[in-house]
Write a protein that binds this DNA or RNA. Structure first.
Lengths: 144, 144
DNA sequence: CTAAAATAGGATAAAAATATCCGAATTAAA
DNA sequence: TTTAATTCGGATATTTTTATCCTATTTTAG
């Protein structure tokens, strides 16, 4: 469904959000350990998320990654997915046609549209806060 | 969402089904032209579909690909997707966790499950016949 | 000012997906 | 039986994704 990079990016963002709630900055090393992802590769993805204003980095000693507490509830999954995989997964045609709409549909269009729009709603309506809180409560996990 | 190979595979299967309804066998050349896909690569995918009993090949002169008319309504999209991409897309965790279920969910689990199960239903309930008929009627398309 | 602790970013490598090419094997028709 | 039209299958190439490594740059503490 999503690329590995995107899976890591979402998991990392949730982990950073949870720690920012608790006032802690986290390093790529700690992130990759806690979400079970390759460290250097994860660091690249974090850079992309910084550029897209999803997370914030603080350089130098005592630096790390964080998200402004007030921003956590405003960051939607769609923003993360979009920064890494683009929007084709929740806006494009299921069979890969460039032009696929009501006027010129692929054979799967009507049925697929329902699923795709469900995914779009999920991504556009779900924010980092609710996901991070589940993690904090211990009712959800980011590894294994 | 699906891999290119899978998109081509589904489009090709629908095209073959439509032609089998009309009593015609089709070649990889014609298929790739009509569904707008690279010919040699599409031929490889067709071989995989033959091995998985989705389509039938007839070798030699006047040969080509076809599907038994009685089988067309029985072939589900899930069978095609499974043969090419596997079932992770409609059975796996959205964030890539190996173990993700009610007892050990990722933070997206509850919401993602709805979308994923919708996709599973789509793939398991939709058969080649209905898709091929839309193509035949001219109410759906496989290219552009 | 210096040293230590971080992120940033370029170069490179490995693996997987996508794609092409060509000869071998098969088969129907003439 | 020969020929032409096919699919089959192996080898190879290209592109994208995933991953690693190393150095430069930044920043805070002492």
């Amino acid at each position: 469904m999503f690329s590995k990079a995107c899976e890591y990016g979402i998991r990392a963002s949730i982990f950073i959000a949870k720690n920012s709630f608790e006032g802690r900055r986290v390093s790529p090393k700690e992130i990759s350990e806690k979400i079970n992802s390759p460290q250097a590769f994860t660091a690249k993805i974090l850079q992309a998320l910084v550029k897209n204003n999803v997370i914030k980095s603080v350089k130098g000693a005592y630096g790390g990654f964080e998200i402004d507490k007030e921003k956590i509830a405003k960051i939607k999954l769609a923003q993360i997915v979009n920064a890494i995989d683009g929007d084709n997964i929740y806006k494009g045609c299921g069979l890969g046609l460039d032009k696929c709409d009501e006027n010129h549909p692929c054979p799967m269009h009507d049925k697929f549209k329902v699923v795709r729009d469900g995914l779009r709603d999920l991504l556009e309506d779900t924010n980092l806060e609710e996901l991070a809180l589940d993690l904090k409560k211990g009712s959800a996990f980011l590894k294994i």
